[in-house]
Design a binder for these strands. Structure first.
Lengths: 147, 147
DNA sequence: ATCAAATTGAGAATGGTTCTCATTTACTAT
DNA sequence: ATAGTAAATGAGAACCATTCTCAATTTGAT
């Protein structure tokens, strides 16, 4: 199985998972929200609310923002700060598998990366009085083109 | 020497360092910008542009934002995303000493933390084509009061 | 088919940030 | 000191991202 096929299966798993969680939470399965979920399912990295809105015909902007808020509250997506003015959002896989980001502060280019040792170090952090659910790591610097 | 005295000395070192870097960059030493620097120097954790503006009489909002942009470009402060609508900013010590943040996604409470092993893991990350300058780590979860 | 509750879209309102521009201030060379 | 010049400023307009409002529609359970 190639990479594209693997990703397609994971997308499907996530959107089904998301729809199921929506129902469990007592919310209805509406068409516009499903469109938002499907679009998020197909992204490789973070997208902004306005990017989603621009891609979705027949879905109001308010609906996009509302869907994002609900998905975030249910732990299905995560907000990430990639340096610009708008926030990005990306899937949280049920498996826990995820990446972090490296950002060029000059041109704004964003690349995802994964690091096992980093994950281990983060999982070893325990703070009294806090139950940690997710985490976000961003490296800032300059890319080759801007250096 | 107690903690307060240690911090006071570090604040002073930072504001002097910041003023010096401002001059080196060919910028003038203006009174309003100095007020912004002094106020940033006295903070224990991240503050927003609007918080700075509210504290500073006789300094225009635009000046606060301009000062923040310049200080960020010079690597003297760092922007951090702490979950709310506005961005926070905090000093980057010349020594490299810094903390990260743990945020309660329910009430918005923010606590700083430090972790040596985490820093080591981050410093071991190398990405071809990128020169990493700074990094940001945020843990999200629920605090005792909200759990 | 009926009903109540959830959801929606359009647009207004808000909050945070950036821009504009005429005036003031800081540094440099006299 | 003084004058010249470029940087910096404040007030408010403008802008972008986000949230709110509300009447109309859709959904899921009866």
């Amino acid at each position: 199985m190639n990479e594209t096929a693997t990703r397609r299966r994971s997308e499907q798993a996530w959107s089904e998972h998301a729809e199921a969680r929506i129902s469990e939470a007592g919310l209805k399965r509406s068409v516009p929200r499903r469109k938002v979920i499907e679009l998020l399912a197909g992204q490789d990295c973070a997208v902004t609310a306005l990017q989603l809105d621009a891609e979705l015909d027949g879905v109001g902007r308010a609906t996009v923002y509302r869907a994002i808020e609900q998905l975030e509250d249910l732990g299905l997506i995560q907000r990430v700060d990639l340096g610009g003015s708008a926030h990005g959002y990306e899937r949280l896989e049920p498996s826990g598998h995820h990446h972090h980001h490296i950002v060029c502060d000059d041109c704004g280019k964003v690349e995802p990366f994964e690091d096992e040792a980093l994950e281990d170090a983060i999982h070893d952090i325990h703070r009294k009085g806090f139950k940690v659910e997710t985490h976000e790591v961003t490296l800032h610097g300059h890319c080759q083109d801007c250096h």
